[in-house]
């Protein structure tokens, strides 16, 4: 958890060191300002997570008579179940979806931030607006588009191509719908980091004889990396626990780690097992992020 540090220290070395008194006061202000979000999360996030941890080892149980300390659920989950395999399947799906979404969103963010000029905020709203329509209804609509008797297949039949069954109730559908859900959200952090880019930098680069592509690769892309990384995190982490989309459009192969957690809590009414799975997911993401943070040095992209 401590490895995860998305921030960039922008205080410059050459500045005179503030006096001790001033530093102390700044510290107090920092603590004061941070206390809002931090204490909010301690109460409404950390406490629930600790409770889940208690459930996973039987410190808390559904029924008082079951009250005992036990690592049974952890043991069963880690060594005697299919869920580890499912976990890696979810990781692969998350990676695929996050990369796809970022690739789709980057050009749009680029266009809006650097090319679109004054219309950019309106266009941004145009992208986000569909998302006020309920997710579930949009999935229903995708079925109308991609389903067996859907728009796409009807068109294919019209031009003499056999209907394509892989369009819906398939892995393809899961990727498509998830990318569809995430692209607008992913575009936003990339947009805001590109938007702060100083165009004169690009001009300078061009003046120095660099091609546009080189400029993009050497200047624009590195400078927008914080946004890209934020966007990636945006998609990657929540998608690991995703279960609704695979359930609705994945067909027989739509079982993911998130479904396992959901079923353990609801269908199996086995909170201990479900809690162990949840704590594993939380821990695994922390580790993944730490590893990820190692490989991508945030500092290297700062000025």
């Amino acid at each position: 958890m401590t490895e995860l540090d998305l921030s960039i220290e922008t205080e410059r070395r050459g500045r005179p060191v503030p006096s001790r008194r001033r530093r102390g006061r700044r510290g107090a202000v920092t603590a004061g300002l941070l206390s809002g979000p931090v204490s909010y999360l301690l109460v409404f996030f950390v406490v629930p997570v600790v409770m889940v941890a208690c459930y996973s080892v039987g410190l808390l149980t559904l029924l008082p008579q079951d009250h005992y300390l036990s690592l049974r659920a952890w043991h069963d989950f880690l060594f005697g179940s299919i869920y580890m395999g499912v976990f890696w399947k979810s990781v692969r799906m998350s990676l695929g979806v996050s990369i796809t979404s970022v690739l789709l969103a980057y050009p749009v963010a680029y266009l809006l931030a650097l090319v679109a000029g004054r219309r950019k905020y309106t266009l941004l709203l145009v992208i986000v607006a569909p998302f006020l329509t309920s997710y579930l209804l949009r999935v229903l609509a995708w079925r109308v588009i991609l389903g067996e008797q859907g728009v796409v297949n009807s068109f294919l039949k019209l031009v003499g191509i056999a209907p394509q069954g892989w369009l819906f109730y398939s892995q393809f559908a899961v990727y498509l719908v998830l990318a569809y859900v995430w692209v607008p959200f992913v575009a936003l952090p990339i947009f805001v980091s590109l938007e702060a880019l100083d165009l004169s930098l690009l001009e300078a680069s061009n003046d120095l004889g660099a091609s546009r592509w080189t400029t993009f690769r050497r200047v624009t892309l590195p400078l927008s990396m914080p946004g890209v990384i934020a966007a990636f995190v945006f998609v990657f982490i929540p998608t690991l626990g995703e279960y609704v989309t695979p359930l609705l459009v994945g067909g027989p192969k739509g079982f993911m780690f998130g479904n396992g957690i959901q079923n353990a809590f609801l269908q199996g009414f086995d909170w201990q097992f479900g809690s162990a799975m949840s704590m594993f997911l939380i821990g695994a993401v922390m580790v993944l992020m730490a590893v990820f943070g190692r490989f991508v040095s945030f500092r290297s992209v700062s000025e």
């Binding site: 299919i82 399947k89 079982f255 353990a264 199996g268 086995d270």
Partner: peptide, 14 residues
Amino acid sequence: QRDAYNRAWDEVKA
């Protein structure tokens, strides 16, 4: 044995 049934069903789906 709802938990056992649920896990067996998860295995079918996975």
